[in-house]
């Protein structure tokens, strides 16, 4: 058990190292991406360029630059932005992370519950109008762009119907920390959660329905029926439980991706200062330390989420347990 954990940790560190080298090289060793000219400004004199280059250490060999950046990022944690001078990068990520974490977690709860319900009901009533309309709804959910849905939600809850009893509880755009006011946190996030979850409900509901229908043709489902179990029990205890294996692996990837800043559009539309938005800002003005920091942050989550998925896998599927 411990050796497996250590192995996992080693793999994680290796992956993180690889990603950091890759990001570093893409931005530092790509021709034309010289950060000096961006920092020094347009038409800077050669003297200024040299000064800036020396000050930021860009005249040193690449491995040294890489090591310095990693040291500043992980050990001294005083890596500063190139764009806003003196603005430390790590605290910015630390400020943004809870926002994204809250957004993604809440949405995940909604989409897991809703899509399991939707997929199971659709599979139970397959080929009836219930199934067809649920799948149609799912397809609509998948097709609606999240920024459009978000804007419409804002239009309705913030402007048009904000003064009616229905939406007067919705606070203005932005994030309210949980510790400050749990109720406010919930009120501020519930609409972004739903908007973000809609796409995933559609995808997961459809995937789960397809899985359940495939599983229903399996021999063990026939055995379960031949045992005299009720259709509900056959579907939930034998079918759904077995189908959850695919569901979980899909979920791990999507959830990690969202935590790592994949909910950019939702964050922008709802004015949430999350990691996605931070990464977007860093990319748009090529702020290398911030890019590096946010990429490393999301890589950590992706790798961690994969590790969690593996653990859940082991719990869900005894065949995996023996295979390792």
């Amino acid at each position: 058990m411990i050796s497996a954990l250590l192995k996992r940790l080693g793999q994680t560190l290796f992956v993180l190292f690889g990603i950091s080298v890759l990001v570093f090289l893409v931005f530092f060793a790509t021709p034309g991406a010289d950060p000096t000219s961006r920092i020094a400004g347009k038409n800077a004199s050669p003297e200024t360029m040299t000064r800036v280059r020396h000050e930021y250490g860009f005249d040193r060999p690449l491995p040294v630059q890489y090591a310095t950046m990693m040291k500043k990022l992980f050990i001294t944690r005083d890596l500063a932005s190139y764009v806003d001078r003196g603005e430390l990068v790590v605290p910015e990520i630390v400020r943004a992370a809870p926002v994204t974490l809250s957004l993604a977690t809440g949405a995940a709860v909604i989409w897991v519950v809703a899509s399991v319900a939707m997929g199971t009901v659709a599979a139970a009533f397959r080929h009836t109008w219930i199934d067809r309309s649920l799948m149609m709804l799912g397809l609509i959910g998948i097709s609606i762009p999240v920024f459009w849905l978000g804007q419409v939600a804002n239009l309705i809850t913030q402007a048009r119907y904000h003064d009616t009893w229905l939406f007067s509880w919705v606070p203005g755009l932005g994030y309210i920390p949980f510790l400050e006011s749990p109720v406010g946190w919930f009120r501020a996030l519930i609409i972004p959660w739903v908007v973000l979850a809609v796409l995933f409900i559609g995808i997961y509901g459809r995937v789960l329905r397809a899985d359940l229908i495939t599983v229903s043709g399996e021999d063990f489902m026939r055995t379960a029926r031949a045992k005299g179990l009720s259709p509900t029990r056959v579907l939930l205890v034998h079918g759904l439980r077995t189908s959850m294996i695919t569901f979980v692996s899909l979920f791990g990837l999507d959830f990690a991706q969202l935590i790592g800043g994949g909910a950019l559009l939702t964050e922008v539309v709802f004015g949430l200062q999350g990691v996605g938005r931070l990464t977007y800002q860093a990319l748009s003005n090529l702020d290398l330390p911030l890019i590096m920091a946010s990429v490393m942050y999301s890589a950590v989550f992706v790798v961690m989420a994969n590790a969690v998925v593996d653990v859940v896998y082991v719990l869900l599927d005894p065949r995996v347990r023996d295979a390792r």
């Binding site: 021999d219 031949a226 077995t242 005894p318």
Partner: peptide
């Protein structure tokens, strides 16, 4: 089913729920 009439299937590899 299962109480008065029971059934044994062809392929025991797949006839039990794997989990």
């Amino acid at each position: 089913r299962g109480r008065h009439i029971a059934m044994v299937f062809q392929d025991p590899m797949t006839a039990f729920t794997p989990v």
